[in-house]
Design a protein around this nucleic acid. Structure first.
Length: 393
DNA sequence: ATCCTAGGAGAGTGAGCAAC
DNA sequence: GTTGCTCACTCTCCTAGGAT
């Protein structure tokens, strides 16, 4: 599995540096945080400086149904020619869906992207809902419309699902059956799993969410689709183990977990987050000062990768995401090396087991911050077991 | 234990200006 | 008219720590 940058507010040199260091192999740009003009320039710059890098654009069409709250934060999204606030009832018309897909694809055709992403809405409640019917329509029509443009780049269709909808296994199976018998299938999917909010860590670290997210990757792969997992962050290794092709993560917390919160009216101010260090051994992030303290008593916590030396004290802001990319890409390389799901899953199990052991030895000597603790391990373990049962591996 | 606000830094923006 | 620069300001991010 390869890693892409999930772009957001305040790009600066982060993506350039990630590509130069070879710790990411592409980037997914977000319409909200870049003007159409600048987007075009950035994509061209990357094409020139890193010709082999994947360059993709998420049109964020799913925001169209967010509602009419005047305070929603659309950022630059409104400057895009295809974007308009819609009501769900409008999308019950097949003709409108056709037109919308065409507009979004037409916009991307002129960009120096390496693949096209066709739009979709978010399935927020259930795979058995009006929204899901609309979403299936977006999926069915995409390839046919794309063929009008006689372009030869791969086409990915957005599939955005909330964790609530994903949890229902029976409905998920029925949905997968529909999607795997398409007349004109796309090359793959740009898969997003939405949490209710950015803070709730347990929202996605939940047995059924992990199991079914893995199952989506596994089933789609078996049916010949490529899968780009947007905002997958530390769950990527588990998705890559069972067939996911790409994982993505970015620098802010809203680029590591997908949530419509990103577009909701702003709540309050805040201060910059304490900088964290992604430990591949713990399958989690800890604060830079925890790393500093633990290094002396349990040196095993460090990844032994080049970026470690930037964490002697508090690192520069722009370093944090590079460290995340470096650590995650090395973890992905280890876990998904064999290309065989069964063997990869054994690697995952080993990783969880050694993380548990490491946490045990830390707990005896040091008290960790709540977000740095081991609560993610159990749902990962249980989710993986449930996945195996459901996929009959 | 939970809620809520203060507050700093980096990046983007646009006006103003100078050089060509 | 265009380009490139500075400067002051705005936007966006987020959590520590005081208040409840």
């Amino acid at each position: 599995m390869k890693l892409y940058a999930q772009h957001g507010y305040g790009e600066a040199e982060k993506i350039n540096q990630g590509l130069q260091k070879g710790i990411i192999s592409g980037a997914v740009y977000s319409a909200k945080d870049i003007t159409p003009d600048r987007l075009n320039n950035r994509l061209s710059e990357i094409a020139a400086s890193s010709p082999s890098a994947a360059r993709i654009f998420d049109p964020q069409y799913y925001v169209s149904l967010i509602g009419s709250d005047p305070n929603i934060r659309l950022g630059k999204l409104e400057e895009y020619p295809y974007f308009r606030i819609r009501r769900r009832s409008q999308l019950e018309s097949n003709q409108l869906i056709t037109d919308e897909i065409r507009k979004v694809i037409k916009f991307q055709i002129s960009l120096p992207v390496t693949a096209i992403i066709s739009p979709n809405i978010l399935i927020s409640r259930s795979f058995d809902s009006v929204e899901a019917v609309i979403a299936k329509n977006f999926i069915r029509q995409a390839k046919g419309i794309y063929e009008e443009f006689s372009d030869n780049r791969p086409l990915y269709v957005t599939l955005a699902v909330s964790r609530e909808a994903l949890i229902d296994f029976t409905e998920l199976e029925a949905f997968l059956n529909d999607v795997t018998i398409l007349n004109s299938p796309p090359d793959g999917f740009y898969l997003l799993v939405g949490a209710r909010s950015i803070e709730a860590r347990t929202d996605l670290y939940h047995t059924d969410v992990i199991a079914n997210w893995m199952l989506l990757n596994y089933s789609l792969k078996i049916n010949g689709y490529q899968i780009i997992n947007g905002y997958s962050d530390l769950i990527s290794p588990f998705l890559g183990a069972v067939g996911g092709d790409i994982g993505c993560t970015g620098w802010w917390s809203n680029l590591r977990i997908f949530s419509m919160d990103r577009f909701a009216p702003e709540v309050t101010g805040g201060r910059l987050p304490v900088q964290r260090y992604l430990s591949t051994k713990l399958l989690n992030r800890i604060t830079f000062y925890e790393l500093g303290a633990l290094r002396r008593i349990i040196p095993n916590v460090a990844n032994e990768l080049p970026m470690d030396e930037k964490y002697e004290g508090e690192p520069e802001r722009s370093i944090e995401v590079l460290q995340s990319w470096e650590a995650l890409s090395s973890l992905l390389a280890i876990i998904t090396a064999s290309g065989d799901s069964y063997k990869n899953l054994e690697k995952c199990a080993e990783a969880i087991k050694s993380a548990e052991d490491l946490y045990t030895s830390i707990k005896a000597r040091y008290r960790l911050d709540a977000k740095s603790d081991d609560t993610h391990l159990e749902p990962l373990q249980e989710g993986m077991n449930l996945f195996k049962k459901r996929a009959e591996i």
